[in-house]
Amino acid sequence: MMRIRKGILLQDPRFAIANREALYTLVLAFLYFAWWYLTAYGLGSSPVEEYSYIAGFPSWFFLSCIAGFIVFSILALLMVVFLFRDMPLEKPAGDGKGRMDHD
């Protein structure tokens, strides 16, 4: 039995923002996966004799593990600075359990 229709339930606007932010973190994780996979297996699958090197490390390793770490730390910073919103987390005053008053 469907008792709750979308129109009747007033959604907390903070949840819309929170949902969007949760989605951003998932997208960032998938981007990191792509970076990690493509650099490691794109460059690392050739025979060892043909490896190139960056700063003494094999290129695949430098790009996937060292550069990936730095790039995605910076992306995480950009994500929270530009995409995340500050919001109060507390329950509104006088609303003991977060339920609607006329309940």
């Binding site: 929170a18 949902n19 932010e21 949760a22 973190t25 998932l26 994780a29 996937s64 987390l89």
Partner: peptide, 23 residues
């Protein structure tokens, strides 16, 4: 390479459970 799979752990746990969880 395998260990570095853990890099997103902090942003994923905090981000996916997210502010909704805290609220």
């Amino acid at each position: 390479l395998l260990a570095m799979i853990q890099l997103p752990a902090a942003w994923l746990t905090l981000g996916v459970l997210g502010k909704k969880f805290a609220i």
